[in-house]
Amino acid sequence: MTNERVAVVTGGASGIGRQTALKFARKGDQVVVADFNEEAGNKTVELIKAEGGEAIFVKTDVSKFEDVESLVEKAVDTFGRIDVMFNNAGIGRITPVLDQDLDDYHSVINVNQHGVAHGIIAAGRKMRELGIKGVIINTASVFGFLASPGTFAYHATKGAVIMMTKSAALELAAYGIRVVAVAPGAVDTPIIQGYKDSGQLDSMKAKVMGNKLTQPEQIADTVYLVSLEEASAINGSVVMADEGYASFK
């Protein structure tokens, strides 16, 4: 196995994050798995090592800039560089807007929005310092474009991720650093449980090819593809990985 790059994946303990960490490792990249869930994050590292890959786990609360900054430093201290930053950590809750608990609202904002901002800033600074023409990839969502009941805070964060991606891409292009967002639709991850509980899942599935949930592995494939040098023309863009969800009424 040839180790070509170093990829940092937040939210790497499960779902899209775990599958993306595995994808990078299978392609020969060294991986830094970051998550607040230490047990599950270490499990991702075990899965990578079982396949012959190289990875470490760093417990990280992405809502705290000092944690994300420390994560980036740990990646460089361990592997010597950082080429890919995948800002993927996210949470979501289904709550009618007028019943919104403000503590819950702020927790979603802090993880999904501020966590991405922290990743962009910390990784971008380190890439600039090291002269690395890297790529920062952010997990957006079809819900950055489309409304659905009960996800007021989640919509706010994913709309912010889209515009932060565009804004950062504009400025970081001067350093040869790309910033891209990937927008999944209905993906079979733990975060989808709220839609199952609210009864919205069937209507979501009815809008996509095959009337099924997208698998996390499919999103991982998309993230990996946009990380490649061959995708260097993709910058400041939101790559839809939603099986047509946002295209159908």
Rank of each mutant, 00 (worst) to 15 (best):
F145Y: 10
A147N: 01
S148E: 05
T151F: 04
F152W: 01
Y154N: 02
H155D: 06
H155L: 00
A156D: 03
T157M: 02
K158N: 05
K158R: 11
K158E: 09
G159H: 10
M164N: 00
S167F: 03
A169R: 01
E171Q: 13
L172R: 04
A173H: 06
A174T: 06
R178G: 05
R178I: 09
V179S: 04
V180A: 04
V180T: 03
V182S: 03
A183W: 01
A183C: 05
A183T: 04
A183F: 10
P184F: 09
G185D: 03
T189R: 10
T189I: 13
P190T: 10
I191E: 05
I192P: 03
I192E: 08
Y195D: 09
D197W: 02
D197V: 07
G199I: 11
G199E: 11
Q200E: 13
D202E: 15
D202V: 11
S203H: 02
S203A: 15
S203M: 12
K205A: 09
A206K: 11
K207P: 07
V208I: 14
V208P: 10
V208R: 03
G210D: 09
G210F: 13
G210S: 07
N211P: 09
K212N: 03
K212S: 13
K212E: 12
K212P: 00
L213A: 09
L213Y: 10
T214V: 13
P216K: 02
P216Q: 08
P216R: 06
P216E: 08
D221H: 11
T222Y: 10
T222P: 10
V223F: 11
Y224D: 05
L225W: 15
L228I: 09
L228D: 08
E229R: 15
E230G: 15
G236M: 11
G236E: 12
M240E: 12
A241H: 10
D242L: 13
D242N: 14
E243R: 14
G244V: 15
G244H: 14
